[in-house]
Design a protein around this nucleic acid. Structure first.
Lengths: 130, 130
DNA sequence: GCTTGACTTAGAGTGCGCTCGAAGTTCTAG
DNA sequence: CTAGAACTTCGAGCGCACTCTAAGTCAAGC
């Protein structure tokens, strides 16, 4: 049977992050200091993987590492911080929605520009009457 | 009658960018060297403003300045670069759509997490039966 | 026993996009 | 005539998120 624990290299392959980045996240307080094997090597458990996956979603949606660290710290303090964490998530969600709205508006501008370009190109390439 | 030209300070107020940033964009090749008043001060025309607004949309949607500069350079070479510019815009649009899709998925995860948090909090706060 | 490779630490370096400071010039209002 | 605001250039500095280097340890396979 395979172990429940994975090495930093395996987690790296799993997430696409380098081992360097994973250690960096730990030193930045985004990942909590993780269990070690007898030789001192990091051993990640499935909980760690799930947390990291959520972290990557926060990051992808534009939350800075410093804020993710604050969230992580609240998380370690147990369920008495549920309120604060909910507030952070709600606030982040609002920012995300605003950003998505802005992006959609930009996409529209882009589409219109593309349409105009296509018609300009079509005109330039039209067979000259003669 | 007011002039058709605006100063860097006015453009700064108009766009929310600092004058420093506007000069930086010029030195980075994102804005082309602009007309000057007799005293050497920059004078921006409405065309420049429109271009800058488009640049800000490209930037907001994640296009790096280096790529915006390439687009700007093509633009200065006239209509013979329409094809390349269209290709850049189309490619960027695809990346944008991919990003928006990813963000929407993250928003769903976030929503679910928020829902779970709310129900956990509700349970904790429920009157204890006794 | 020796090589290979995955891991460890601490700390320096990189790339991007600004952001600021210094020192000087010029316009405007009082 | 003078004060203050707005502008000029050049170049250094900053914040973020990595990214890499160096030097070392340890375990497995030949």
């Amino acid at each position: 049977m395979t172990s429940n624990f994975i090495s930093i290299g395996e987690l790296s392959r799993l997430t696409g992050l380098t081992a360097h980045t994973l250690r960096f996240y730990e030193s930045a307080g985004v990942l909590k200091p993780v269990g070690r094997a007898s030789n001192g090597h990091r051993r990640y458990h499935s909980n760690d993987v799930l947390w990291l996956e959520f972290v990557l979603k926060l990051k992808l949606t534009g939350m800075p590492l410093a804020e993710i660290r604050r969230y992580a710290q609240l998380r370690e303090q147990g369920e008495m911080t549920l309120d604060s964490r909910l507030a952070m998530l709600t606030r982040h969600r609002e920012r995300l929605v605003a950003k998505m709205t802005a992006l959609a508006a930009c996409a529209d501008t882009l589409d219109e520009k593309i349409r105009i370009y296509r018609s300009m190109i079509a005109k330039l390439k039209a067979p000259t009457k003669r």
